[in-house]
Amino acid sequence: MNGTEDPTNDEMLVETDVSDGLSASANSVSRDAETVISSENINVWYGDDHALTDITMDIPENSVTAMIGPSGCGKSTFLRCINRMNDLIDVARVEGRLTLRGKNVYDDDVDPVALRRRVGMVFQKPNPFPKSIYENVVYGLKIQGIDADYDEVVEESLKRAALWDEVKDRLHESGLDLSGGQQQRLCIARAIATDPEVLLMDEPASALDPVATSQIEDLVEELAEDYTVVIVTHNMQQAARISDKTAVFLTGGELVEFDDTQKIFENPDSQRVEDYITGKFG
């Protein structure tokens, strides 16, 4: 379903003049083939508040990258830079370069709606629409006018979200009637129905009980076989359990360390990271 192997997928970002978009991609700096998202000196301000400072990192494809850090450190802000959700905040200002497969998502010719089709998002609180399970899944496709075999998309998306077996006999019942964990998996199905390459998850299990949390964690690991998952979590053990890479943001909107998760949790380079993850501050 996802388009990670499509060499021409830059055109999906571009609102007009497809050839310019492709040209921009072709001329961009050659990147490690495994890098999907690359951030170069990203700075974000909310009015006068400098929320992110010079964030530079490469996020590899088909992996789970966790972002941890104390409240207000900017990890969610960075997540929202990736699919330009910060555009929706009037006082937000983003500087720097953030590329999706080499194409700067902040270029003028990038359509944020097309971008968000390639970069899906799941939020902290399950937020299904007051519609049927079926309609929730195909909602993104319908509003974007994408013609597809909706039945097939619904089945495939719900299977990938590990929800199909639980809802296949009641697809036309309201999504709001599902349990919290099921609702969150429905939201994940909705996010992957539009065939994204990247899934952004902003504390997707923090409102769920331990069993539902385990299901989401299992799902995240499975999804990483096909998608690049970037997850913000306050739960450090969750980051340790499910992620391949971990980015530690600390107060001041600074990315202090970004490395393999095993390295971060067993032997971080930074004393500040060590102090944070061992609970000595924060």
Binding site: M236, Q237, E266, N267, V273, I277
Partner: peptide
């Protein structure tokens, strides 16, 4: 306590 890093070692 789910220790990590230096504490875990």
């Amino acid at each position: 306590q789910q220790p990590v890093a230096g504490d875990l070692r």
